[in-house]
Amino acid sequence: MALQILLQLIVTGLAWGSVYALIALGFVLIFKATDIFNFAQPELMMLGAYLSFTLITALKLPFLPAFLVTLVLMTVISSLLEMMVIRPLVGEPVLAVIMVTLGLANVIRGMTGLIWGYEELQFPKPFSAQPIMLFGAAINQAEIFTILATALLLVVFFIFFKYSRAGLSMRATAEDTSTAFLMGINVKRVFTASWAIASVVATIAGVLLATFTYLEPIMGHAGLKALPALILGGMDSVVGAILGGLIIGVAENLAGFYLEQYLGGGINEITAYVIVLIVMMVRPYGLFGTKEIERV
């Protein structure tokens, strides 16, 4: 029985971890390409989830088409945001740009509350609530789907960045913007594309999260767990963001179950931060981040 519980906890942890990983991935994509930390990333995730909710409930679209339409909508929205809000700030101090993304986050959250209300909404479940039995453990279908969808997405990403011309130009720009110019890469377009891709990742994270929780304007707070995932993995590492997310998802679930009786309720809420605190003491640049050496 103990093993079944462990398995359940790990699967749930991986599902949450996948969502953290995807949010963290969105942060990393924008940060690497443009050197901006986009605080509105969790809000983009929430917006994506709400949009697909509306498409499913109001327009009565089936889950998959609604999901795809949402991706297109979010790509358009985030590209416009980049072009209208962020691009005019190019050359301004980084802090100013970051503050703008923070403002953007608040605006999106407020608008969502205005439009959809602050009540929790039940996301129409695309999967049956019937759990799957795996080695005697009852496992939520939506969680399994979340893990698989995330894995699939990561494979697609890997292929895109490794083999496609656009992916390659994005990696080159991320590494050295001014040399990217010399290669004839359209750097502005790469910046817009990185926002678009980050919003696609965020939307997928939001919809997946909604399938096994519910919608509310503060669901972006899952992003607060993505931050430790990001710091754990290293700010500029894609692999680090993913592993960081998974580690934190699993760790907080295990801690929530096994440590609660000794340390009291709510221990799962702080697990992520404790882990990060410890990692930061040993490796201040994260598990996979680039060590920045400053020579005097």
Binding site: L168, S169, R171, A172, E175, T179, M183, G184, I185
Partner: peptide, 21 residues
């Protein structure tokens, strides 16, 4: 460019491919 400025994280082959962008 001065100082070579190859894309250090990309492989040699990928650097050559970027040139043909």
């Amino acid at each position: 460019p001065e100082g070579r400025r190859v894309f250090a994280e990309l492989t040699v082959e990928e650097n050559i491919r970027v040139g043909a962008h």
